[in-house]
Design a protein around this nucleic acid. Sequence first.
DNA 1: GTAGGGTTAG
Length: 820
Amino acid sequence: MNALRKQASNLGKQTGLKEFTGKDRVTDAVRALANFYAAQLSLCSKQIPTSYSNARMVHAHMIVSGFRPKSHILNRLMDLYTKSSNLPYARQLFDEIPEPDICARTTFITAYSASGDLKLAREIFNNTPLNIRDTVSYNAMITGCAHNSDGNAAFDLFRDMKRYNFKPDNFTYTSMLSALSLIADHESHCQQLHSEIIKSGTGFVTSVINALISVYIKCASSPHVTPSLLMDAARKLFDEMPHKDEVSWTTVINGYIRNDDLDTASQVFDGMNEKLVDSWNSMISGYTHKGLYSKSLEMSKKMHLLGIKFDGFTYTSLLSACANSKLFLHGKQVHAYIIKTVINPSRDFLFSVNNALITLYSKCGKTDDARKIFDKMPIRDIVSWNSVLSAYVEAIRIEEARLFFTKMPEKNEISWSVMISGFAQNGSGEEGLKLFNQQRSTECQPCDYSYAGAIRSCSAIASLNHGCQLHAQLIQSGFGSSLSASNSLITMYARCGVLEDSHSVFLTMPCLDSVSWNAMIAAFGQHGHGSRAVNLYEEMLKENIAPDRITFLTILSSCSHSGLVDQGQRYFNSMYDTYGITPGEDHYGRLVDLLCRAGKFTEAKTVIENLPINVGAPVWEALLSGCVIHGNMELGIEAAEKLFNLIPSHDGPYILLSNLYGKSGKWTEAARVRNMMRSRGVKKEPACSWIEVDNMVHVFLVDDTKHPEVSEVYGYLEELVFKMRKLGYVPDTKFVLHDMENEQKEHALSTHSEKLAVAFGLLKIPAGVPIRVFKNLRICGDCHNAFEFMSEVVGREIVVRDGKRFHHFRNGKCSCGNYW
DNA sequence: GTAGGGTTAG
């Protein structure tokens, strides 16, 4: 005791606090010490960057001084440890208490389950002798189970406590009601619990009614009930409540928002006499959630004008609205305001608001700024990590994403799915599938988003085999009706050439979103089924699904590839006039493509001259490829020059321009362009390309035999020429080889390209086995003709992948109709 | 020492 008194006195001298000095009575010294520690710990919770290590020091100090903390000190320490993810220290803290009373136990049960370690919480609870248990500790344990999604355990505990004669109280019932939605057949259990509550006499307690309302609203979202009936039941409870508190109001408001009834939500909100932050937050987050971003900004402005102080939830929802609507400047203003006004934010606040800031910067394309926010955060949670990961993925900085992913201290299903999708989006299908398999060997099993990523990986490499397997596994895992996975299946089947399978996925989906419609329209378009694409688009409009930017890109391509010029133009005009979407350079590119393919160069030029934005690469590229199709030399050269400046490292413009020259028989110029491409070090130069003019097939090769791809092609070519001649195909065709090293040198040798040759090789596949050609080279007009010819000669269907597009050749005709 | 609503990552 003397030591303790000395301790307090020393601390007093050190800190200069009077209350620690000159006290004679031991109890005062103990109390003073307790106060000192409490003050120190509350200081820790304000010093964000070092809170945990300081807490640790204070804790160590207590141990050395022999001080036995009471529950309020314990709570502060627990709070610091659990919030800084230092559960082991919390555990140590608990173990240091010689005989923890029921209050200490309850504190720890609550803390452990709040930090997600239900097992530890349960261990403490189970080790608590029955004679010291009470209703409160049962309540804490039940809440823990409910928060960690173990509804059945909560019900077991509930039965248990009644068996041992612990009387459930209003806390018990509120927790039980929140556990209700986690168990099967919760509608009938709800009835049972409701009557039990009434019998128990807690039926008039506000918190219990709040929980009941919440349960009825949750039930209203179940697929097999009539939502309006349950919403009415919830509303009746609400209307008849003797005393409504903040939670009652927000529960009902959020309930209406959840059931897409924003008008009623807003009416309830307006009916509130005193609107506090929470109810404003409900409205703001509701509008943000439903995509009505301008409404949430409007709400926040009103709130600000009324002088209601924003809290963490307000900022988070508001920033999310800015991020989703790409209102970067507004978001930045909010950020500045936070920096200016928030002096002493709690840690929870820092997590969510900073995470929302990361997302704001990331979605507005400021990836490095997003990373800076992350780096500045004193402590981060899994959401912070995932936000930065998806920032890299969204910016297609896949190597940084990969590195970041490996550095993550923990990964959840979102981390995995983001990384898998990142690979798929980057075209690294093999890597995506590899990672998916890796995830399967972890404890964190794939969710439907991971499946969607893996399926998209299959699309990237056109692997129908893996795609089908994943489809089967998806159904097995119970994710068969997942929206995102089904959407990716539509695209996967279409890109792998089986349009009808893609269509049947679309037709059997329980619900569709705009992505589903876009994917199916694109599938039809890519297969050359322009009219089916257009019909589906019209159907989408009839279903009152608003088309978005992607829809327009898709439908414009479909029209372009099927020669539906007028219709395409009409759709383009409706984009802004009817739907208020400002066309981007991609959309103008599609419009120019639509016109040029149809040979309408005058109209295309008019469009370009009157463009409200800078004429970008997509527009010039569309113009150039149109010029190649129609042999428009003058315009083509102009477009190519622009492209060389805009995208100097791309090979496309060079190849298109040399083909354009070749089409007019200007072989010297054609070869010059190819040499130019090489001397500028443009990558992806193909080993071989070709063009046919007046029964003459001109083949360009990188060099004669040095390139492995070329020598392989030669073999096919010789065989192909021989067979084709034998079959009587274009007997007058002369074959001219343009060697890059010695231009104009003629070889009476070869015919079409590698793709054609490979296709021919595949024709050796036995009858009955479908022929599919997966090559990532663009198909050209003459190649197309040859495939048509071959399908007739061999009497079989040949499916050829052309980038994202598929051609089905059958009986001398192609599914794409008048594509070429 | 225990509760009910509202947040951020795909």
